[in-house]
Design a protein around this nucleic acid. Structure first.
Lengths: 136, 136
DNA sequence: CAATTATATTTTGTATACAAAGGAAATGGA
DNA sequence: TCCATTTCCTTTGTATACAAAATATAATTG
């Protein structure tokens, strides 16, 4: 029982799942999943991104992006439009609903982060994030 | 683009996915996924665990355990038996195939771990693991 | 200009994670 | 003893991640 408990993949998996749970709980009232909220954040930063650009920015593969976009559009968080200059390209825009919730959703994510990291010192937070970034 | 790049959930997710890829690649020749290999490791440590016990040890929920066990049994890595003392209970045993591959599979996991952490000093490895365990 | 190659997104399929529900067996109290 | 409740695992459903294939459009080449 001790060997795989020291396996980095296992530890990352469980840490991720545990942390994600904090965020998921906070997003539930909005009817959003954490990946959906993440995608909205990318759009708040820059509207009109293509599906491919979103995938690159969020390190999501195109099949996943396609599904997430579809469900976000269905729930009226985004609007998908073809690019007139290239019929293969989908550009994604935020709906009024999304614009209205920007501040609160970002707040939810920030709060979840604080919750997750509440037991760490500032130095430890920086170090942990550096370690994780080094793994990417 | 910078805000969610500092989100702990995002960083953990992507670090996990990136790391898992190393392990997945090494397990592919065996036809095993990383969670399946993880489950086999639990059984090498103790045969005859119940589905529930496996779930507890590996922090897997029962629906997931059920599916993983089913596919492992189908591929002849494990044998599922009812417990005579309690018909609700499933006890899981390793097949000959699994016993034969124990050493090599553990080696694959160890090597993947080394690969993933090759850029970290020994002290950093210890610290990273401590941080992750603190998140659980 | 037509054929070939490349690109963008969607679809299809498998696996895991999780929530909820279902079915069978065991338990405990009246 | 009987029955309501609890327990164990499976099934069902949704979401994401990833691999592969499909479809449509754009670019390149001869």
């Amino acid at each position: 029982m001790t060997q795989y408990m020291d396996c980095i993949v296992f530890l990352l998996a469980k840490a991720y799942q545990k942390s994600q749970n904090h965020l998921k709980t906070r997003l539930r009232p909005y009817g959003l999943t954490s990946v959906q909220a993440l995608l909205l954040e990318a759009l708040w930063e820059e509207q009109g991104l293509t599906a491919g650009e979103i995938g690159k920015r969020l390190a999501l593969d195109n099949a996943t992006v396609s599904g997430v976009l579809e469900r976000l559009a269905d729930a009226r968080w985004i609007i998908k439009k073809n690019d007139p200059a290239d019929k293969r390209v989908i550009r994604v825009y935020l709906s009024t609903k999304a614009m209205k919730h920007e501040a609160s959703l970002i707040q939810e994510r920030t709060t979840a982060n604080d919750e997750i990291l509440h037991g760490f010192s500032d130095a430890e937070k920086i170090l942990l994030k550096r370690f994780l970034k080094d793994l990417l």
